[in-house]
Amino acid sequence: MKKKEMIFFLIILVLAGAFCIFHFITQTPSAVVSVSIDGTEYKQFDLSKDQYYTIQTPQGYNILQIQNHTVTVTEADCPDQICVQQKSIQNKGELIVCLPHKVVIELK
């Protein structure tokens, strides 16, 4: 790799890294989780109440778990299972996305 290219990618790395650090420092716990399907809001939940909820979409289901102010998807019938493998989320702005079902779970 040439020196110029190295510098170029290093600058991108530093910028992205700075953004990530900024993001981790400024994150605050969220109180409300909003679920939207295909771009329209479907339901909102309060994070203080522990519960399970089944999000039913035309393509399939995702089971949402709220526990100790964190949100996870415990089960889904989508082919890639990316939403299930994802770690639990608890801070404002964090997302869990199920692309096959067009579900976006967002903390507000």
Partner: peptide, 23 residues
């Protein structure tokens, strides 16, 4: 494409992380 499909621009939130991983 993901943004278009779920109609939510907020997915670009992942961009800086993906930049680092992509490099």
């Amino acid at each position: 494409i993901a943004c278009i499909v779920v109609e939510n621009i907020k997915l670009f939130y992942y961009m800086p992380f993906l930049m680092i991983l992509g490099i």
